[in-house]
Structure formats: structure tokens, C-alpha cells
């Protein structure tokens, strides 16, 4: 007997969670698209943003409308600084150098954040009512709806940015070919910094949404591990891909948790997206929407 209501609930939840994954993945895609650098510290960015928001709310006693902009500005400054100090000297170096630098950065953040903000899990209450939003047969938790809406908002904003704005077009040029972009008078290094700053904005709002869902502590950084299946499935350099990949991962992991967990005893939620990702890597490594770069190995 197939339970449609149960499946529907799993899928709805998967869609919401998936859009929240997309929110984190967007930051990753932005940086990769513009600078070809891989940010293994995206989860830690989100954690840091969550810590800044709760730090402002609880430690400094600031109101909510002030805490979030401070977190956004703080993360932008962090992104700029990081690009300047760590990433810029690594331009032109082998890919493992960049990967290891961001892994090192992740380690530093995971060690440093609890020292400044405390090791306990801090709740991050959103200033919205707690009751689930009921839409016909669906009942949606408001925190996740906010996260999903933020994600869709960013999709719209970035689509406009990359297609219409002068800065966005320049950034696409940089992503396409750095040397040609340089020859056309685009300040490539400036756009690298801007990309990292934008990743900071996305991470700040990701920290808000995820912090409200899970509470803010060091384990918040673990959502970063979900970024990889999302971006590989969707395509590393595609904003739309981040959204679609997020949806796929969210739905698949919820269905796996609902139907496979009782059979094998739990944990498939973290496992299924990676199996899917391996299959994708074998068949179509550039993802669903990624640019097909012909690179023979």
C-alpha cells in the first residue's frame, strides 16, 4: 500500500530543504564561476555568519533589524579580506593549493568561532510567528519557507545581475577568459574580490536561515558538506544549476530517509546524495546546467 500523503510530505519538505541547500551552494557557484577557486569553507562561512547574528542579538543585545545587516557587512568585509590575504597569492598555483587553503581556513574558523562566541548552541529566533503555514494539503514550517524564499530571491537577483548589470557582464567575461577580460580593460582582481564579497552576502543570509533552523554552533558548518552534491548535480558554474541541484538533493535525501532508513537503520540522508553525485561524475561531470569544458585527461 503506497502512502501518497507520506510521500507528498517528504517531497514538500525536500523542496524546502533543497532550496535552503541552494542558498549555500549559490555562494560556492559565484566564487567558482568568477575566480575558478573552490571554496571548501562555504559551510564555515555560513557558521560564521550565524555566529555574528546570534552574537549581535544575544551578546550585544542589538535588535534583529540591525543584526542581519551587520552580519551581511561583516561577511562582505571578511570575503574581501580573505581574497586579498589568502586567495590572491595563490592565483596561478595548482588547484590543490587553493583546495587546501580553503580547508585550512575552514579549520581555523571552526577553531576560532567558539572562542569568540561561546561553544554552546545558541537559538536564532526569527521575528515571525511559529505556526506552520497551511496551504491546501501542505503544511509548511515558516523558518524553512523564509529560507526557500531567500533562495528564490537570490536566484532572481543573480539572474538579473549576470544578464543585465554592467558589473555582472564584466564578471561573466572574467569567468569566461581572464586574459581576454584583462585585455578589454576589466580589472580582473577587483572582480575576484567582488565575487568573494558576494559569496559573503549569500553566506550571511544562509547563516540566518540555517541558524534559525538548526541553532548556531560549530556543527552548523556541516551543512557545507551538502554543497558538493548540489553543485556537481546542477553544474559548478550555473546559478540555475545550484537551485535545481538543491531541489534534487533535498527531495532525494528526504525520500531516502523516509523509505530506506527503516530498512538499513538510519543515516541514508547523508549517504544518498553522494551516491547520486558519484553517478553524475561518471556520466556527466559538468552537471545538468554546467558549461561543457572539453578537458581531456
Amino acid at each position: 500500500m503506497f502512502d501518497w500523503g507520506f510521500t507528498l510530505a517528504l517531497v514538500t519538505n525536500g523542496v524546502l530543504i533543497g532550496l535552503m541547500y541552494s542558498l549555500i551552494a549559490l555562494g560556492f557557484v559565484l566564487v567558482y564561476k568568477a575566480t575558478d577557486a573552490i571554496n571548501f569553507a562555504q559551510g564555515e562561512f555560513v557558521m560564521l555568519a550565524g555566529f555574528i547574528i546570534t552574537g549581535m542579538l544575544l551578546l550585544a543585545g542589538a535588535p534583529f533589524w540591525l543584526s542581519v545587516p551587520v552580519a551581511v557587512l561583516g561577511m562582505v568585509a571578511f570575503g574581501f579580506g580573505l581574497e586579498r590575504v589568502v586567495l590572491r597569492p595563490l592565483i596561478g598555483r595548482p588547484i590543490i593549493a587553493v583546495i587546501m587553503a580553503t580547508i585550512g581556513l575552514a579549520t581555523v574558523l571552526r577553531g576560532a568561532a567558539p572562542l569568540f562566541f561561546g561553544a554552546e548552541t545558541q537559538a536564532l529566533p526569527l521575528p515571525i510567528p511559529d505556526e506552520p503555514i497551511v496551504l491546501g494539503p501542505f503544511s509548511l514550517p515558516p523558518g524553512q519557507v523564509v529560507g526557500a524564499l531567500l533562495s528564490l530571491g537570490f536566484l532572481a537577483a543573480f539572474s538579473w545581475f549576470f544578464l543585465k548589470s554592467r558589473m555582472g557582464v564584466a564578471m561573466r567575461a572574467v569567468a569566461d577568459n581572464q586574459q581576454v577580460a584583462m585585455a578589454m580593460g576589466i580589472n580582473v582582481e577587483r572582480y575576484f574580490a567582488i565575487a568573494w564579497g558576494m559569496a559573503g552576502i549569500v553566506a550571511a543570509l544562509g547563516g540566518l536561515a540555517w541558524g534559525a533552523l538548526l541553532g548556531v554552533d560549530v556543527h552548523l558548518a556541516l551543512v557545507g558538506l551538502k554543497v558538493f552534491p548540489v553543485v556537481i548535480l546542477g553544474g559548478l558554474d550555473s546559478v540555475l544549476g545550484a537551485i535545481v541541484g538543491g531541489l534534487i538533493v533535498g527531495i532525494v535525501e528526504n525520500l531516502a530517509a523516509g523509505y530506506l532508513d527503516p530498512l538499513v537503520g538510519g543515516g541514508t540522508k547523508d549517504f544518498a546524495p553522494y551516491v547520486l553525485m558519484i553517478l553524475m561524475l561518471m556520466i556527466r561531470p559538468y552537471g545538468i546546467f554546467g558549461k561543457r569544458r572539453i578537458e581531456r585527461v
Partner: peptide, 27 residues
């Protein structure tokens, strides 16, 4: 996978290998 992909993709594929092997041993 290293025969088809390299660099970043290989890093992520081995990361997946790590998680899958860990999960398998644990379960």
C-alpha cells in the same frame, strides 16, 4: 574517476569515497 576527471572533480569524488566507505563500515 581520475581517468575522466581531474582537479576539483577528483577532490570531490574522493571526498564522496570517504563518506561512502565510512558509512558502509559504520552500517
Amino acid at each position: 574517476p581520475s581517468l575522466r576527471i581531474k582537479g576539483l572533480y577528483l577532490a570531490i569524488a574522493t571526498l564522496a569515497g570517504q563518506l561512502i566507505i565510512e558509512w558502509t563500515i559504520n552500517h
